[in-house]
C-alpha cells in the first residue's frame, strides 16, 4: 500500500465512516438544538438587560454591569465546568446539555448586552428630543426611533460574536454532551480510527461556514452609510 492509500485508509476510512455516520448526524442535531437555544435565549436576555439599563436606575445598572463583566471575564469552559461539576454540591444537578446551554447563553447575554447598549447610547440626543417633542413617550421613542437605528449599527459585531460563542457548543463534549465532537470522539475511541473525527470536523464546516460567509456579507451590507 502506498503512503497515500494508507493515509486515506486511516483518515477517510469508508467503512468506519459509514458505520458512524448516524452518530455524527445525531450529533449535528444536538449541536443545532443547542446553538438555536443559545442564540434565542442569549440574545433575548441581552436585549432585555440593555432595555432595563436604558431606564437608568442606578443600583440596577451597577448590577447589570457587574453581571455582564463577570460573564465577559470568565472562560466559557470554566463556567460550564463550574455548573456541571460544582453546582451539584449545592443541590441542583443540571445535565451536560443544560449546563452548556445556560453557560453559553449567559456569555452571549453579556456580550450582546454590551453591544445593544453601545448601539442605544450611540444614537444622538437630538433623535430623542425630536421624537419626544412630537409627543412620543420614552417607550415609543425607544422602540420606533432609537432601537431601529441601534440595531443596524449592532448587527455586524453581534453576528460575529454570536458565531464565536455558538461555536463553543463543542465545549459540551467536556461535560458529556452528545454533540458533534462528543460523538466523533467516542466513535474514534471505539473504532481506533480517526475517520469519525474527520467527519465531525466536516460537519462543523458544513454547519458554520455558511454562517461565517453570510456574516461577511451582512457586514458589507450593513456598513453604516449616511
Amino acid at each position: 500500500m502506498s503512503g497515500w492509500d494508507k493515509f486515506v485508509e486511516t483518515f477517510f476510512n469508508a467503512k468506519v465512516m459509514w458505520k458512524y455516520l448516524p452518530d455524527i448526524l445525531s450529533g449535528m442535531v444536538v449541536t443545532i438544538e443547542l446553538a438555536l437555544l443559545i442564540v434565542v435565549t442569549g440574545l433575548g436576555a441581552g436585549l432585555a438587560l440593555a432595555l432595563l439599563r436604558s431606564l437608568a436606575i442606578r443600583p440596577l445598572n451597577w448590577l447589570i454591569i457587574f453581571v455582564v463583566d463577570l460573564f465577559r471575564s470568565l472562560p466559557p469552559l470554566v463556567i460550564i465546568v463550574l455548573m456541571y461539576f460544582g453546582l451539584p454540591y449545592a443541590g441542583p444537578a443540571p445535565s451536560g446539555f443544560v449546563s452548556t446551554w445556560l453557560s453559553l447563553a449567559f456569555v452571549l447575554m453579556a456580550f450582546s448586552e454590551e453591544i445593544f447598549w453601545a448601539g442605544i447610547t450611540s444614537i444622538p440626543k437630538g433623535q430623542w428630543e425630536a421624537s419626544r417633542s412630537t409627543g412620543l413617550s420614552f417607550g415609543q421613542t425607544l422602540f420606533n426611533v432609537v432601537l431601529p437605528q441601534a440595531f443596524r449599527l449592532t448587527i455586524p459585531p453581534l453576528t460575529n460574536r454570536t458565531i464565536a460563542i455558538t461555536k463553543g457548543t463543542a465545549l459540551g463534549t467536556v461535560v458529556a454532551v452528545t454533540e458533534i465532537l462528543g460523538q466523533a470522539s467516542s466513535a474514534m475511541s471505539n473504532s481506533y480510527n480517526p475517520s469519525p473525527l474527520m467527519m465531525g470536523a466536516a460537519a462543523y464546516i458544513v454547519l458554520f461556514l455558511p454562517v461565517v460567509v453570510a456574516a461577511r456579507w451582512i457586514e458589507t451590507k450593513f456598513a453604516w452609510k449616511r
Partner: peptide, 15 residues
C-alpha cells in the same frame, strides 16, 4: 407636546 411643534438646528430627522 403634540400641540407644540419644535424645529431643531440639526434637523434631527430619523435616518
Amino acid at each position: 407636546r403634540r400641540r407644540i411643534g419644535m424645529v431643531f438646528q440639526s434637523f434631527n430627522l430619523y435616518p
